[in-house]
């Protein structure tokens, strides 16, 4: 029945199995809770329509149509917004005592956070597909080619995976899910709106440009946009990857440590 073998290989196999079990559990929640599905799918589509048809006419994008400028940005914005769900979900698990149950099981210690972030990754892949399709429907014409599109997707997914770990830490540090939500909003608004996601940074006041141009979310948006459209994007891809790696090596251990102490 339950295995007791402890060879490194079997441990690794079971750790992978635990991560998969937890990821599956978290994805089920997205399917089962209608509001979660709205948050994941409907909201980004609303943003696309809102900016494409309501605000977009007032915004001039340099060297391309606004819809081409917008869609790569929305992709990055959606994954950052989506990570809020990670913070709330973990805070809820903690609050309801589920984490406590997991900690009393002979499962891999990293599976709760590993499964959660993997589930996020799966959700982000879904978002990527949906936004790409909707984007094409509203006039998005990326000209960088298929390979560049896949590169851009990789950058976006890796960046958002690392962001998930930061939000996992917030979820574990918050005393309850309401606080987790309250803690994330003052963070996600400046990093997504004071960025190059929706508007060219040049239109912002000088002091804000300094922040908006250099912060990681803008770099990610620049990179994804440049790759998808086949336009010059400087070092933004390398800078994005550097930010993402930095986040991963600092926030993943922090979140893991927090998890060990939680409950």
């Amino acid at each position: 029945m339950s295995t007791t073998t402890q060879s490194p290989l079997s441990r690794l196999r079971w750790a992978a199995s635990d991560v998969a079990t937890m990821a599956q559990r978290n994805l089920m929640a997205v399917v089962r809770i209608p509001s979660a599905l709205v948050f994941v799918i409907i909201q980004p589509v609303m943003f696309v329509l809102l900016f494409r048809y309501v605000f977009g006419g007032a915004i001039t994008a340099p060297g391309t149509s606004y819809v081409n400028f917008l869609i790569p940005g929305i992709l990055v914005q959606t994954t950052v917004f989506g990570a809020v769900g990670t913070a709330i979900g973990l805070a809820e698990d903690l609050q309801r005592g589920l984490i406590e149950r997991f900690r009393a099981l002979p499962m891999a210690r990293m599976a709760v956070l590993g499964g959660r972030t993997i589930a996020d990754l799966a959700r982000n892949i879904l978002i990527l597909v949906v936004i790409t399709i909707v984007g094409f429907g509203v006039g998005f014409r990326p000209e960088g080619g298929v390979v560049a599109y896949l590169q851009a997707s990789f950058v976006m997914l890796f960046f958002s995976y690392c962001v998930s770990w930061g939000f996992a830490y917030i979820g574990l540090a918050a005393p309850n899910s309401e606080t987790a939500q309250a803690m994330t909003f003052p963070l996600i608004f400046p990093i997504t709106f004071a960025s190059s996601i929706f508007v060219p940074v040049q239109t912002m006041p000088g002091w804000l440009q300094v922040f908006a141009r250099n912060q990681p979310v803008s770099q990610a948006a620049e990179s994804v946009r440049g790759l998808m459209l086949g336009t010059p994007h400087g070092n933004s891809t390398w800078i994005t990857m550097a930010w993402a790696l930095l986040a991963l090596v600092t926030l993943a251990p922090l979140a893991t440590r927090r998890y060990r102490r939680a409950a």
Binding site: S2, S17, T21, R25, P106, M107
Partner: peptide, 16 residues
């Protein structure tokens, strides 16, 4: 968010 069956099955899988 899981069914009764899924809950027990999850714990069984986490018990390897």
């Amino acid at each position: 968010n899981l069914t009764g069956f899924e809950n027990i099955r999850m714990v069984a899988r986490l018990n390897h």
